[in-house]
Design a protein around this nucleic acid. Sequence first.
DNA 1: GTCTATAGGGGGATAGAC
DNA 2: GTCTATCCCCCTATAGAC
Lengths: 201, 201
Amino acid sequence: MDAAERLFAEHGFNGTSLRQLATEAEVNLAAANYHFNSKEALYLEVIRRRIRPINQVRLDGLRQAVEQAGDAPPPLANVIDLMIRPFFEAHRDPQSGGRHIVQLLARSMTEPLPFTNKLLSDEFHSTLTRFSQVIRRHAPQLTPEEYLWRLSFVVGALQHTLGTLHQMGDLTRGICRSDDYEGTLARFVRFAVGVFTAPAD
Amino acid sequence: MDAAERLFAEHGFNGTSLRQLATEAEVNLAAANYHFNSKEALYLEVIRRRIRPINQVRLDGLRQAVEQAGDAPPPLANVIDLMIRPFFEAHRDPQSGGRHIVQLLARSMTEPLPFTNKLLSDEFHSTLTRFSQVIRRHAPQLTPEEYLWRLSFVVGALQHTLGTLHQMGDLTRGICRSDDYEGTLARFVRFAVGVFTAPAD
DNA sequence: GTCTATAGGGGGATAGAC
DNA sequence: GTCTATCCCCCTATAGAC
């Protein structure tokens, strides 16, 4: 599974063969097929294994913040932080998948594979909806349409940031640091807060 | 080439075979290989054919705006508009590649294929540098690091927006319209201007 | 330049022994 | 459950006739 995570993240679904994978993991090809039934099922399982706990943490954090805040919505910066922090934590921690799972999630959002649609919308759409309900309370000036466009901009920025985080050091000749998780997180939170609180026009 | 553009955009490089492609285009497989030498070369050619004119328009527009503005930098909203409008124009016009080339470009930024690196950095990096020089004059409050992070956020938002534009109607149950090019463009410009002009902290 | 035919190498999945 | 061996498919690329 760890090997699959890495190879799928680096080369994509179609760019990775079960043979490479079995070699890398030092397991037998037939055994792998026996356990996972098919390449598609393995791919889905690799994603599922990580996405579930991450979204659980996100939703629990949000629920807790909403309860603590009583009638008012929790501060927007907190909400954004709760929404994105688990991805950065996963990126930092190899035991949670490290950069590979984050890259793979970012990739699976961009790369439209027919069999991932259901999993991704089941796992992400409901989470995004919950967060949207809270964020919306901080952005009453926006029409639903304008809100959804801005949400799409923020999601795109997040996906791109997570997918390229490990290269930012090289891409900027050291100006941006790939290992400054708290700094990047804080920058992103300020960015997203700014986007949602900007005037409707 | 048109068939290749569509298939590569929808299924990626590894997900598209020269056979599908030859069938779709109603040409002979061997003939296609004769003209393009290899699948990689074809892929690069498909991208190159569109990226060159698009970046030419972007750079010409910028140059002209800079000349007209004299000593002052051209207004930030204009600069952003010049930077992104050509992509929306291409999306609208099937003769310029339509949504397929835009999807393919968005995809090629996410999907790291070893042989596209040189082309993409040659074509995009220099363009991005020119625009950055002008945008930077409107964002003197930002450190180089903060500027590059925000640029990365905006690029990610653009890439995601372009890649999913054709689905926005469905994804939002009709609230956002995929065919409202001027509206989306205007929203994105306001978004990006807001990001670059927001306080440093 | 364009075709048919095929070389030569993977690919995913499975049968059947252990 | 785990292995070896193999089926059968599709792939890219090319040779060689026209």
